[in-house]
Design a protein around this nucleic acid. Structure first.
Length: 439
DNA sequence: TGGTGCTATGAGTGTCGATT
DNA sequence: AATCGACACTCATAGCACCA
């Protein structure tokens, strides 16, 4: 069998993830054919040649002898390239993230020119230097990752990376707390952070301001429209914006309208949008459930916060720190006077009624046939279920769309019930309990 | 103390709308 | 018509915080 597959051009290799059973290899061939109209051809070392004759032969063989379901793999598409530079990116929390700039190279169907190196320790661990030839691949078929350095090809001219001691954007000192991996800029009003804050505030899951992306924000800061914080957004005028490079009356009108629309978002979104450390979507929703508004939240004693389920000392402290700062309190005042809704009537606590999916934990991977993630999530929650972000023993169902990620492997490993995307959508409509398959 | 889940960050492609 | 920016998708990984 091994020779048979080898003759077909399949390769068997020994390292890395991506274990696939023969059935999966064949399935992959067919999916490829569906998408591209022909069977897989040679791509960067991954050789699969299947004629229609052979196709039948493989299928026949497998159905007669299921014990041939051995682990075979595609060769992980790995290529080498050169690290041209390592640059620092600054996020909204002030974190300095080193990113490798690579000689552009094709990996698994797309051109990769950058890869995040996460932090200083990671660079040290892998000993990555500027000028090094490195092996890269795409983790989970998407994210470029530097796997290792080819040290044999070192010439001695490689430059070791040194984390700067001042912020590359604002020149303030940076600090790295003892025991932490992340280095941060110390200046709370660093422009890079302002940029990040605005982006976060405007993002879809926060205040959802359409038309305000990275480039626009940079421009607005450079032109002085934004200089303090997110409240500056609400002072912008159509006529002034329309004067900007690349903006016309149409764009300016749309942008101002989008900003206007953001004044009426649910409280949990506003809390999330403020960008308090350790307060993401989930924690923001918990806080919005407990309190009627941002102002009330700003006055809650630490002790009380800590008593809330899922909120511990660190998160409580972080919230307390945020509201102890004058500039943040001013920000909230400014938002309020701009007309942003900072208060929400408490809804009547709904009776916890037993629903079809009550107590069930769902996780989603891949793309669903007709709905997106948020829609699927809303449906699950409306039926009493919960949606988690990673597969664990507590997961009841994994919903699998096309092009699933590593969550599927994990689910198989743990014996979690797998529900196909189509199947899920039918369940949602007919209000039934997923059956799914066990691997 | 370990398992689990959340937060923060970053990457690529294709599509669509607005500007020039 | 060409170009550019924004957005909608999706996912990995590290680092932590929380909780039992």
């Amino acid at each position: 069998m091994l020779d048979f597959l080898k003759n077909l051009g399949f390769k068997v290799i020994q390292h890395y993830k991506l274990f696939r059973e023969i059935g999966e290899v064949i399935k992959y061939c067919f999916e490829w054919k569906e998408r591209k109209g022909e069977f897989p051809y040679e791509t960067d070392g991954m050789v699969i040649k299947v004629s229609s004759f052979v196709e039948q032969e493989i299928l026949g063989a497998v159905s007669r002898s299921p014990r041939w379901a051995l682990a075979y793999k595609f060769p992980a598409p790995e290529v080498t390239t050169v690290v041209k530079d390592i640059q620092i990116y600054i996020g909204r929390t002030g974190a300095l993230t080193p990113v490798a700039h690579l000689e552009p190279v094709e990996v698994d169907g797309s051109i990769v020119s950058r890869a995040t190196l996460h932090n200083e320790d990671e660079i040290k661990r892998k000993d990555i230097r500027i000028g090094d030839r490195v092996v890269i691949h795409k983790a989970g078929k998407i994210i470029p990752e530097v796997i290792m350095v080819i040290t044999e090809e070192r010439t001695g001219n490689e430059i070791e990376f040194v984390m700067p001691i001042t912020c590359p954007r604002c020149s303030s000192p940076v600090y790295k707390p003892e025991g932490e991996a992340v280095t941060r800029c110390t200046n709370p009003s660093c422009f890079a952070r302002l940029e990040g804050n605005i982006r976060h505030y405007a993002s879809r899951d926060a205040m959802d301001i359409e038309g305000l992306g990275k480039a626009r924000i940079e421009q607005l800061i450079a032109e002085g429209f934004i200089n303090k914080d997110v409240s500056d957004l609400y002072d912008m005028k159509i006529e002034e914006l329309a004067e900007l490079d690349g903006m016309g009356l149409k764009s300016a009108t749309n942008l101002v309208k989008a900003i206007e629309d953001s004044k009426d978002r649910p409280l949990k979104r506003l809390i999330y949008a403020l960008g308090i450390r350790h307060v993401g979507e989930h924690v923001a929703a918990i806080l919005a459930d407990h309190y009627t508004g941002v102002e009330e939240l700003s006055r809650v004693p630490l002790k009380e916060l800590q008593n809330i389920n899922e909120i511990g000392p660190k998160v409580a402290a972080s919230i307390g720190e945020f509201f102890s700062r004058k500039d943040n309190l001013l920000l909230i005042n400014r938002l309020k006077s701009a007309g942003v809704k900072v208060y929400e009537e408490k809804k009547e606590k709904q009776e916890e009624k037993q629903q079809i999916w009550t107590g069930k934990q769902f996780v989603i991977t891949g793309t669903l046939p007709t709905m997106n993630r948020n829609e699927a999530k809303a449906i699950i929650e409306s039926k009493g279920g919960k949606v988690g972000s990673s597969v664990s023993k507590k997961t009841d169902f994994l919903i699998v769309g096309t092009e699933p990620g590593s969550k599927l492997d994990k689910a198989k490993e743990l014996g979690i019930t797998v529900v196909k995307g189509e199947e899920f959508e039918v369940m949602a409509k007919e209000n039934t309990v997923p059956q799914g398959m066990l691997f």
